[in-house]
Computed example of a mutant assay.
Amino acid sequence: MAENNTSRRDARTAGQRLVSSHASEDPFAAAFKATRMPMLITDPHQADNPIIFCNRAFCDLTGYTSEELVGENCRLLQGPETDRRAVDTLRDAIAAERDIAVDILNYRKDGSKFWNALFVSPVRDEAGDVIYFFASQLDFTNIKSKEAELARARHLAEEEVALRTAALSEALKAKTSLVHEVDHRVKNNLLTIASIVKLQARMTRSDVVERTLMSVLNRVEALSTVQRKLLNDEDVGHFDVADFAKTLVMDVVGALKRTDIVMTTDLHEVVVPATKASPLALIVNELIGDAVRRGLSDGGGQIHVEVRRLNGHFLIRVVDTVTPVKVDEEEDAFSRKMLEACVTQLKATLERKVEGHSTDVRVTLLVKD
């Protein structure tokens, strides 16, 4: 206890000596005392580098009187939640006699916490030796509280986003599974219908009925191909017209088994919503089927299929060169009606040009990216 009193007396003496060394009219001394910024001075030549002087603002900030502070080390302001790393940083800077700026959680006399922006600088004499340490403080508890509130708000927002994202992901997963299931059932139903029509065509003795059934079968198989494409595509909501056209042409030409058919393509990816898949598939099917009926299946020839973008639109083009044969007028008329209906449904335009044995048909449709 006597040792503690001696330390306090030495610290108080050092402080008085420091003050008395400045005239009362010294503006720097007056400013130190009167400023609203909390300030203090410590003496590193005394044991434990005690506070030897502090201004009124520092007392107001901490709740201690000057008599209680002088002779104490600044660790008096530390508490249970004070960051040990900040304390170590401060201690190392003082030991190295260098400037330090650190944010540290301190405690007032009544136990309340405040965030302290602490600035400590060594004061040197003319020889460069450190004779004092000067410290100024800035209470930024309000700012820190706002940062904490923002951090909490951000955390809550991130949690909410995570929850909503998880919910949306689950909903999307369920929707995707449902769409796949529906597509799968539609595909199976189309295959069942195709099997029934094919069986009926085989059993009928009427050429007219057989041709009619095979015509129906041709369209059902085209729609079945559409469903297969949609089902196998990861993006079940969209349909690649070029990919479908390529598959359909290869299927048709392969089924004809004719070596005298020259097939060329100019196909570029054009993705459209799945709602347009069926009418677009029927358009491609009718254009290729038209070429087959007019002679491709009898005398061979050339067929060129093109799908590509064109100035904000996309183009479906089928060009064939065949030696014409007599066609079934009823089937031909039905095909044209089917084609016109699909073109009207999609608000597309249809152009047909015939020169000699060559027929060039273009269907142009507005497409959005």
Rank of each mutant, 00 (worst) to 15 (best):
S24K: 08
A166D: 07
I131E: 13
N232P: 00
F239V: 15
D60P: 01
V305S: 08
I104E: 02
A162H: 07
Q78H: 04
Q345V: 13
I196H: 14
D266Y: 03
L105C: 01
E149V: 14
A291S: 13
N116E: 05
V182C: 09
M1R: 10
L315Q: 06
N232Q: 08
T349V: 14
V272Q: 09
E329A: 15
N4T: 11
D243I: 06
T259H: 06
A167Q: 13
S21M: 07
A341Q: 10
V327L: 14
T259S: 12
R185G: 11
R219A: 15
G237S: 15
A34F: 04
S121V: 04
E221S: 09
D125K: 05
R294G: 06
C59M: 10
D103Y: 00
Q137G: 12
V252H: 00
A274R: 08
S195A: 15
K146P: 02
R205H: 04
A47E: 10
I288H: 02
L190Q: 04
L61D: 04
K276G: 07
E147N: 09
A93M: 03
L18D: 04
D103W: 02
T364E: 13
L223W: 03
A341G: 06
S121W: 00
L90E: 01
E340C: 06
R205V: 09
F58T: 10
L18S: 05
V161F: 10
L150Q: 10
D183H: 02
N232A: 13
V270I: 08
I100T: 09
I94K: 04
Y64K: 12
R154V: 10
A117L: 09
E3M: 12
K337E: 15
V271L: 05
V252D: 03
T359C: 14
A157E: 10
F119Q: 09
K368G: 15
E160G: 13
I143H: 12
T359P: 02
R205K: 08
V241Y: 02
V262S: 14
A341C: 05
K187I: 06
G301V: 03
N188I: 13
E126K: 14
Q46P: 03
C54D: 04
N142K: 12
G295Y: 00
F239M: 12
A101P: 01
L339M: 09
V226P: 02
Q227F: 03
S121T: 05
N116T: 05
M338T: 07
T141G: 11
G254R: 01
R219V: 09
N311S: 11
H268E: 11
T82F: 03
N142I: 10
R124G: 07
T364I: 12
K353Y: 08
D92V: 10
P50C: 13
I193G: 04
D328I: 06
A157C: 07
T212P: 01
T259Q: 06
D110N: 15
S21E: 05
V367H: 06
E340P: 02
A30I: 03
I131N: 10
G111A: 13
A86M: 03
R36Y: 02
D233I: 01
L296I: 08
